[in-house]
């Protein structure tokens, strides 16, 4: 069943057109990677899939319904987003930040319940930030912060998980942990994953399907094997590469 669809969406900032007539459909339990050179519109596309930006044209549908017509809290319970680094000024603790993932579930007039605390704990455990529980977010390294945001997204208990370069600040060990975690959630809990990655190797290893963007258009899509070819890399990135089969780093 199609869980998330982009129907003919276009978007531009003032005069510059960033995305042109993108059509995308994501099946439940899919693991989709979005790749492409800088400025190809990856982040813009991802933001539009979770109401972060409104498409200039076209629609984004969650289970067949326009996400801009759905209740914002309903969307947040179903679609979670892990943004690239955010600059946080106030000294919230890691626990408080992850608890914010529960905010679509918590009523305006009430405090978090025991159940919320339990969910937050397991989310922190999964993202390996439990030992940072009471640390202030502004004292953490960017890699630790990235994992806190992943924990926050998990606390939303979403059906769809969107990640904007989730491993960009992580060391090699945590890169593997985070990607294995996402893979496990995808396989065991059937969470649909859409992930932007600059690392073509990692994307091909973990994603079931890849979408390659070039200057705001889908250049090609399909299985990693089909998408990542010598010719495509040359055409899109302008780099000559040799493709070597084998276990890439992780």
């Amino acid at each position: 069943m199609k869980i998330l669809e982009a129907k003919d969406i276009s978007f531009g900032y003032d005069k510059k057109e960033v995305l042109k007539n993108i059509n995308l459909s994501v099946e439940e339990a899919d693991f989709l990677g979005i790749i492409g050179p800088n400025g190809s519109g990856k982040t813009t596309l991802l933001k539009m899939l979770c109401r972060g930006l409104k498409p200039g044209q076209g629609k984004v549908l969650f289970k067949g319904e326009d996400i801009f017509r759905l209740d914002t809290r309903f969307v947040a319970k179903n679609i979670a987003m892990v943004p690239q680094d955010e600059n946080i000024i106030f000294p919230f603790t890691v626990f408080e930040i992850v608890m914010m993932g529960r905010s679509p579930y918590i009523n305006r007039f009430s405090w978090e319940k025991k159940e919320d605390v339990n969910i937050v704990h397991s989310a922190m455990k999964l993202a390996d930030v439990l030992r940072l529980r009471d640390r202030n977010i502004d004292e953490l390294s960017s890699g630790e912060r990235q994992r806190v945001f992943i924990a926050r997204a998990l606390a939303q208990m979403p059906k769809v998980l969107l990640l904007d370069e989730p491993t960009s600040h992580l060391d090699i060990n945590h890169q593997r942990d985070v990607l294995e975690l996402i893979k496990k959630l995808n396989e065991n809990v059937k969470i649909t994953v859409i992930m932007i990655s600059h690392d073509i190797n990692l994307a091909s290893k973990y994603c079931k399907r890849l979408v390659l963007l070039k200057t705001g258009k889908i250049f090609t899509e399909g299985s990693p094997k089909k998408v990542i070819t010598k010719k495509v890399i040359k055409d899109v990135y302008g780099v000559k590469v040799e493709l070597v089969k084998g276990n890439v780093l992780l």
């Binding site: 109401r51 679609i79 979670a80 943004p83 946080i88 905010s103 679509p104």
Partner: peptide, 20 residues
């Protein structure tokens, strides 16, 4: 208060967490 907590962390994130 709850909305303000989320917005204080980041306006972008607040949207993703269902805050209008």
């Amino acid at each position: 208060s709850n909305d303000l907590n989320v917005i204080a962390v980041g306006e972008e994130s607040a949207v993703y967490l269902g805050v209008k």
